[in-house]
């Protein structure tokens, strides 16, 4: 008699399970999936602008959508770099007791800088968005 198992995995809708415990990851995943499709579409639109006379509004709209969708990616990529550089001592969820004992061996001295780095990158990226809006619409 074989074991009967039932699979609930394999659907994109399962992403919504993240809402209950990790909203940041949910936004990250959602934006990423949207970005994948829209980046190809936007690439095509930008490419088309060389051959057809597209209005600048379309160009700008796509540029801005991509910019917005990149927000979580930019932040998480910077975070990933910080995590690698500090072996998880910033932004990681390492065991608490382990953290306090291993700090003296493994935590780099520049840890506070790495902690600030993703926020700085995010701030720059958001400032860019504001600048974009300002230059194009005012």
């Amino acid at each position: 008699m074989d074991k009967q198992v039932y699979e609930l995995r394999g659907r994109q809708s399962n992403l919504s399970r993240l809402v209950h415990f990790d909203k940041e990851a949910y936004i990250h995943m959602l934006f990423y999936r949207a970005l994948i499709i829209l980046s190809v579409v936007a690439g095509a639109v930008f490419f088309a602008s060389y051959f057809f006379n597209l209005s600048t509004a379309v160009f700008r709209a796509f540029f801005m959508i991509i910019w917005v969708l990149f927000i979580p990616q930019v932040f998480e990529s910077a975070k990933g770099m910080s995590v690698i550089a500090t072996r998880g001592f910033v932004f990681g969820h390492l065991n608490k007791s382990y953290r306090s004992t291993a700090e003296k061996y493994l935590k780099p001295r520049a840890a506070p800088l790495f902690k600030a780095f993703p926020y700085a990158v995010l701030a720059a990226w958001l400032a860019g968005l504001v600048l974009l809006v300002l230059t194009w619409f005012i």
Partner: peptide, 14 residues
Amino acid sequence: GEEKLDEKLPMIKE
């Protein structure tokens, strides 16, 4: 002390 607990008895603390 907290340090010794973290190093030697982390599970008890947890």
